[in-house]
Design a protein around this nucleic acid. Structure first.
Lengths: 213, 213
DNA sequence: TTGCTTATTGGTCGCATACTCAATAGCATT
DNA sequence: AATGCTATTGAGTATGCGACCAATAAGCAA
């Protein structure tokens, strides 16, 4: 059980404490939504007083923005490894994309879909968050582009403009996940595979070549 | 100029007042976001006291939900007329879709894109709004399906499953509009035409056949 | 004109948020 | 063991929200 009374105060190095706060904020944002990333909610998560969180983040917007980046960065590397054939698995670009589409359409990814939807809307009001979201969008798109380029060079894919194709593939992914809070039960419907189909078209592959094995 | 002091109170028929409130809430939701649809904000818009709005909407969620429906219903009929060849223009299904893609990718549609993004996220927390969004999603999809079916019967389109195609087309539209608050400046990029390209593929048309004249 | 129904007001209450700042106490250094 | 730096607390301010309710007055009907 979590400690009830005012626990003995623990003094930590600023860098460590700050990192701890961002991690807690990322967890709250991922599971409950970025609107719930408040000084009080994050402080509760850590068992500290709200004032402490406010001390490290004089503007709450900064905490929300960093929470988003922390949460999405974690998924990025697992979904799209920086070097498709680097250490940690000699996956072919085709295998990487296959895994990408399998994971992004699984229910494990639902909270991540919610987070992106959340962040893209909240960016309307919070400029600092907006900057972080734009940066992540570019990062993800670049990572997909890397994978496509690698596949084109190895002869697996046939693609004239890797960046444009990456853009279109991500549009399809984001479109499919837009309904996560409303008509998510329609997932079994044709929309789940739209992103995969778009990718196959973009990369000159036959239908089903990026489907899970 | 707007009246400053407490203007003489005006007494209206409940039905009229209620409709007026929903219209004002829809305007606020469309231009400033559904989070700004509060009892106070809507009351200001109308020049009445917040208590009055609260009287007509004992639960604020209801007002937000109805505001969303009112705002989206207005666009639906202008974008996708119920009878493609009915009164008000003997447009062919092809012309209807052409206009649909032209309008949805114009900047005039930006606030509508923001509204949908807004509503789909907010549905996470507000069940009543969620119901309205789901209903609108079905309505829009059905309207696209109608147009596709009409085009298939007239021989303009070639489509096996009109409903599935309508779903995929809307996924592409929503995907393209997901970046409205973040990377909207990328609109000139290939993503704008993705939805149109998806539609052309789905309906067995050649590339560019749904492009603006 | 008088009276009555009820739409509308004005105020309050409880709760949650961000933000500020002096006071406190943990921990490393001396 | 004593000292000093500063991480941390606790309390307070200001703003905004939804919800509630008695008092008021607008406009219709008699």
């Amino acid at each position: 059980m979590t400690s009830r009374g005012p626990s003995k105060r623990v003094r930590k190095a600023p860098a460590e404490r700050r990192h701890e706060i961002v991690a807690a904020a990322a967890h709250v944002g991922l599971t409950e939504g970025l609107e719930c990333v408040t000084l009080r909610r994050v402080a509760d998560e850590l068992g500290v007083r709200p004032g402490l969180v406010g001390h490290y983040f004089p503007a709450a917007d900064t905490l929300v923005a960093e929470a988003f980046t922390a949460a999405t960065m974690a998924d990025l590397d697992s979904l799209l490894p920086e070097r498709p054939d680097g250490p940690g698995g000699d996956d072919t670009p085709r295998a990487v994309l296959r895994r990408f589409f399998t994971l992004t359409s699984s229910t494990e990814f639902d909270n991540v879909s919610r987070l992106w939807l959340n962040a893209r809307h909240l960016s309307r009001y919070r400029p600092e968050l907006r900057d972080h979201v734009v940066a992540q969008e570019l990062l993800w798109c670049g990572r997909v582009e890397q994978t496509i380029t690698a596949g084109t060079e190895s002869g697996d894919f046939s693609c004239a403009d890797a960046w444009a194709s990456a853009l279109r593939i991500l549009v399809a992914v984001d479109g499919a996940s837009a309904y996560i809070n409303t008509s998510a039960d329609r997932r079994g419907a044709p929309i789940v595979h739209l992103a995969r189909a778009v990718a196959e078209t973009e990369l000159g592959l036959g239908a089903g070549e990026l489907a899970p094995i």
